[in-house]
Design a protein around this nucleic acid. Structure first.
Length: 911
RNA sequence: GGGCGGUUAGCUCAGUUGGUUAGAGUACUUGCUUGACAUGCAAGGGGUCACUGGUUCAAAUCCAGUACCGCCCACCA
């Protein structure tokens, strides 16, 4: 015994950090841009610089790591590019909250000092998530770690801005945009969540200026009436047609505004007449354009009424609403109030109600960029997995609207545009000396910064060195797979495709894998604020309930703490549970699946390794003569190769869960439950060292394949086990690591259908005996005899040659054929043979009777259905021949079984 | 309002192009400290595949509709 005996229980905490350090030290995560090998690259969806690891990251990064490790073992030069996003609004909000505790706000500090504070924050808290990702095992190339505000990435941003500006695709304009009064900045359409809310719908009466009557308008936002510049009715609306062209006197303000005819007014809705406020409503803005209406802002950027709001000036917008309603009520101009669900636009960062706000902003004209990006997906150059997300993509891209890219915050890439005192704009990568139009040297840079996504849409090539023509770009671009969540399909995925086609003249990636969302068991999205998400590091490293203080409303089940499941167990569980693109309802107890599997693998390996012997070398499979392989050996080799094919196919199709299932059942059911049990007698048979050696060698050969197949799924335990395998199995490599070993390839010549068929028979016989024993509650210690009736010569031979296995696995002493059967015996039918277990003193006749009756009833029922099918003339006439043959064969088999079972039951009833 | 997804065992989920006796893990029942593993072994019970109709020789699977759940998009003020 020269092999190290493994611990009885696998402890991930003893293993995981050790191997991660080893891999990192030996540069096994490094992508070599000078390599001659084919490349495979992935860019990480950059987490926010202040981000913390969530369960969603666990799933997303496990999938990326799985792909990278799989491809690396397959011989590709792999690169997994890590990096973080500066996340403008989110990060600025965080730092502002932090300085608020010191009684400061950013304006007190000023731009420069404030940014210093953000950078300090970034240095301190940025990248924590990457320390956490290391615990997960992520094989990121940390030497290349990027940040969206790195010098070269910032240069890329400026270069892109100038290029699009020069092409006329970036413009500046006074538009109505989504404004968050809390974040004090413009937002893109995608940054606004429309939340259905119970609201009110008020009817207001506007008197006609000539005193001839009034017109009723309906609104959900009465406070904006101060900015009304018209009332619109449908031009075909008989009720109001005659009023078009007349004027109304706006209550409270007294301004005279026209009644106009416009199809925007829906006669079905409310009174059919609608107030028009071009400065505070997107529709009204359009109507205003059509009719040349004045745009009067009455709400300022802080959400307060402004000087145009008369004596409401200075009031908060919602207080103003109350006041205005009360005042109209007093004037008897408030004519109705109804409940109505309305979609309230909210800022996805702060949650504050977004205000349509008239201001000068920068925009990207998207349509010309979208066209080629639609094409590459439609033509299949880029494939989405699951495919149905392509529909969502097309729908958005075909109706794309211009992208508002300016943000009125400080943390981000400052827009490279300068204004002179005459209002001319100069756009340039470097600070210009003089205005391009008038030559003025009195220039001031734009105060606004760019939307965060304006840097992340360049991510697949800016991280590789663009705009320089780098070796990295040549080697690793376009990247291969993008794995991300469908929630950022518009924010990020679509824009990366557009940017890449525009600036690289190529697609950014070939496949996009959308992982599902992690929910809690009640189906709610997991989030820290809901307190329904565990900290993933608790699950990896374990935590005592006392230490859980991170969240205010922690799920009670975490208060007791959780054991150290280890990264491998979590990874395996996640991919086992994740259907292509489907959501996962998650609870930490589900990880027991992975934990148990980890322990099973560990112990199976422990068993195989403890049975090796230094004095008896392990034979390589190619050195074992075919004739020395027993049925069990051939069978497990056959099954291994089928599993390899299945895994390869599943991973290729991004069906990670199928690949995981294939591995799981191969390892647990076939290798552990059957193969290892079958070879035990050979392993223990020191009288027959040659057979022993073959059994040992095949067992460890399969184990070697198992750990390599499993490595992308469970990197740590497989490295630990692989390192413990005999050296003869290790292929030479620069660094001794499973990461440098080849991924198993299928050897189809090892697939042997006839051996599998024989094995099935054996399993069925053993299963039948076990079933009898189990139903009768026969203790394992009691051995029984076995009589097989009606077996063909071939089957007899097979049973004889495997008699030892049957005896061992089914706890049988003697096996005989065609003996007379004792009256008191339990019986089963397998492939037309009677399996008779004479257990006179062991069995309960009544139990056996009911067992047989139940079985007869079951087969009878099935047979009835089948007979009906086969007597259907249409079925015979129209179904394919092979289907009919199969059904007929089935019928014969069942009929035989039924007959035999009935005979057996009769024998028992005779007593 | 439009679009997309879902509804299969108590729970979490598989089920690829229609043809299996509808599966896995877990939970449950029973028997086992069987020379790797009680985080284990063996056996067992449990499903009218949401509902209704249609296509077909044949539907969990294809089509239409209904109900419920979820997500996304949209200017009904």
């Amino acid at each position: 015994m020269g092999f190290k005996e493994l611990d009885k229980v696998y402890d991930p905490t003893k293993v995981e950090d050790k191997w991660y350090t080893y891999w990192e030290e030996h540069k096994l995560f490094h992508g070599d841009e000078t390599s001659k090998k084919k490349h495979y690259s992935i860019v990480i969806p950059p987490p926010n610089v202040t981000g913390m690891l969530t369960m969603g990251h666990i799933l997303n990064n496990t999938i990326q790591d799985l792909l990278i490790r799989w491809k690396k073992m397959q011989g590709y030069e792999t690169l997994w590019m890590p990096g973080t996003d500066h996340a403008g609004i989110a990060t600025q909000n965080k730092v502002e909250a932090a300085i608020a505790e010191e009684g400061l706000d950013r304006h007190m500090l000023g731009r420069e000092k404030f940014l210093e504070r953000v950078w300090e924050w970034k240095e301190k808290y940025g990248g924590i998530i990457f320390k956490q990702l290391r615990h997960l095992g992520a094989a990121c190339d940390w030497d290349r770690e990027c940040f969206t505000m790195d010098e070269n990435l910032s240069f890329a941003v400026k270069k892109v801005f100038v290029s699009l500006y020069d092409k006329g695709l970036i413009y500046r304009g006074r538009r109505l945009i989504n404004w968050c009064p809390k974040c004090y900045t413009a937002l893109a359409d995608e940054e606004v969540d429309n939340v259905e809310t119970e609201g009110k719908f008020w009817d207001l009466a506007y008197p006609l200026a000539d005193g001839s009557g009034e017109i009723i308008v309906s609104t959900t936002r009465p406070e904006t009436m101060l900015g009304d510049t018209a009332v619109a009715v449908h031009p075909e609306d008989e009720r109001y047609k005659a009023m078009i062209g007349k004027k109304v006197r706006l209550p409270l303000i007294g301004r005279e505004i026209p009644i106009i005819g416009d199809e925007h007014a829906d006669p079905e809705l409310g009174s059919g007449a609608v107030k028009i406020t071009p400065a505070h409503d997107f529709n009204d803005f359009e109507v205003g354009h059509r009719h040349n209406l004045e745009q009067i802002s009455v709400i300022d950027a802080h959400g307060k009424m402004n000087e145009n709001a008369g004596h409401y000036n200075g009031l908060d917008r919602f207080e103003a609403r109350k006041k205005i309603l009360a005042d109209l009520e007093n004037l008897k101009l408030l004519r109705g109030e109804r409940n109505k669900t309305v979609a309230i636009p909210k800022c996805y960062r702060s949650g504050d109600i977004v205000e349509p706000h008239l201001s000068d902003q920068w925009f990207v004209k998207m349509e010309p960029l979208a066209k080629p990006a639609i094409k590459v997906v439609r033509e299949g150059q880029i494939k989405f997995h699951p495919k149905h997300w392509e529909e969502t993509y097309f729908h958005w891209m075909e109706n794309i609207r211009d992208w508002c890219i300016s943000r009125q915050i400080w943390w981000g890439h400052r827009i490279p545009a300068w204004y002179c005192e005459h209002g001319h704009v100069t756009v340039s990568i470097d600070e210009p000396k003089a205005c391009v139009e008038c030559g003025s040297t009195n220039l001031e840079q734009e105060q606004d910064v760019l939307d965060t996504w304006f840097s992340s849409w360049l991510w697949p090539f800016s991280t590789l060195g663009w705009p320089d023509d780098t070796a990295d770009l040549k080697k690793f671009f376009p990247t291969d797979t993008l794995a991300t969540g469908p929630d950022i399909i518009f924010f990020w995925v679509a824009r990366m495709i557009m940017a890449s086609l525009e600036f690289m003249d190529d697609i950014p990636f070939k496949d996009v894998y959308f992982n599902g969302m992690i929910r809690d068991l009640s189906g709610k999205k997991m989030s820290k604020s809901l307190g329904n998400s565990p900290d993933p590091l608790w699950l990896i490293n374990g935590v005592d309930g006392k230490d859980i203080t991170a969240f205010s409303k922690v799920n009670p089940s975490y208060k007791k703490g959780v054991p150290a499941y280890g990264a491998d167990a979590i990874r395996l569980t996640m991919v086992y549970l994740t259907p292509l693109g489907g959501d996962i309802k998650f609870d930490h107890t589900l990880i027991e699946l992975g934990q148990k599997f980890t322990n099973k693998l560990w112990n199976a390996s422990r068993f195989v390794l403890m049975n090796l012997d230094e004095d008896q070398p392990v034979l390589l499979l190619k050195d074992i003569p075919e004739s020395n392989l027993e049925m069990a050996d051939k069978w497990i080799l056959s099954r291994l190769n089928r599993a390899i094919i299945e895994i390869e196919k599943s991973l290729h199709d991004f069906r990670m869960n199928d690949a995981t299932h294939a591995l799981y059942s191969f390892i647990w059911t076939e290798y552990c439950d059957w193969y290892i049990e079958l070879i035990k007698s050979r392993l223990y048979d020191s009288e027959n060292p040659e057979k022993q050696q073959v059994a040992r060698s095949v067992a460890v050969y399969i184990l070697d394949n198992i750990v390599r197949l499993l490595h992308p799924f469970m990197p740590f335990i497989t490295e630990e086990l692989w390192q413990n395998l005999p050296d003869v199995l290790h292929q030479e490599s620069d660094v001794k690591s499973i990461m440098s070993q080849p991924y198993p390839k299928a050897e189809t010549e090892r697939i042997d259908a006839s051996v599998e068929k024989d094995m099935t028979l054996l399993q069925q016989i053993i299963g039948a005996i076990r079933n009898i024993r189990g139903e009768m509650n026969v203790p394992p210690a009691k051995e029984a005899d076995l009589i097989v009736l009606g077996a063909s010569k071939a089957k007899q031979a097979l049973i004889k040659s495997s008699s030892h296995s049957i005896q061992k696995l089914a706890r049988v002493s003697h096996i005989t054929f065609d003996n007379e059967r004792p009256k008191l015996s339990a019986t089963a039918v397998v492939q037309g043979m009677d399996i008779v277990v004479p257990l006179a003193e062991l069995i309960d006749i009544e139990v056996e009777k009911s067992r047989l009756s139940k079985e007869i009833e079951r087969i009878d029922k099935q047979l009835a259905g089948l007979s009906k099918k086969l007597s259907n003339r249409d079925f015979i006439a129209r179904a394919p021949k092979d289907v009919i043959d199969k059904e007929k064969e089935k019928q014969e088999n069942w009929q035989t079984s039924l007959k035999k079972l009935e005979e057996n039951l009769q024998l028992l009833l005779q007593d």
